[in-house]
């Protein structure tokens, strides 16, 4: 039984580290700020949660698991808020996204006839 849990933990840790690495690699490789946000999203969602699940498996049923669950819930709720705040702030000062067609950038049509 212990070996199965250890194997599962290894699998989750390797998967988590893989996604964290991929997300950060994307942050370095992608061409502009808006596209880098998407890469950072990989790290914040799947990578983080997988690594925390691995730790929960190792901790078993204890207060440690509850605390890990709280960390994962907190990151789950705050990371999209922080990402949205970043994107919104960049958009508000008029940072132009790379490679987006002109047609997408025109402001919302507000004529009400």
């Amino acid at each position: 039984m212990e070996m199965i849990i250890d194997l599962a933990s290894w699998a989750f840790i390797l998967a988590g580290v893989f996604f964290i690495f991929t997300g950060t690699l994307g942050m370095l490789r992608l061409p502009d700020f808006y596209t880098r946000l998407h890469a950072a999203g990989i790290t914040d969602t799947l990578g983080t949660e997988l690594l925390l699940i691995a730790m929960m498996l190792q901790a078993g049923w204890s207060i440690v698991t509850v605390k890990l669950l709280m960390i994962s819930l907190f990151i789950f709720f705050t990371s999209p808020t922080a990402t949205h705040a970043l994107a919104n702030a960049a958009n508000a000062v008029g940072l132009r996204p790379f490679g987006v067609p002109e047609a997408d950038l025109r402001p919302k049509t507000t004529e009400k006839a």
């Binding site: 950060t24 700020f33 950072a40 790290t43 690594l51 960390i71 990151i75 990371s79």
Partner: peptide, 12 residues
């Protein structure tokens, strides 16, 4: 963004 991402990894 880099600072925020760095912080998330620091938590882990």
């Amino acid at each position: 963004l880099a600072g925020n991402s760095f912080g998330t990894k620091t938590v882990l």
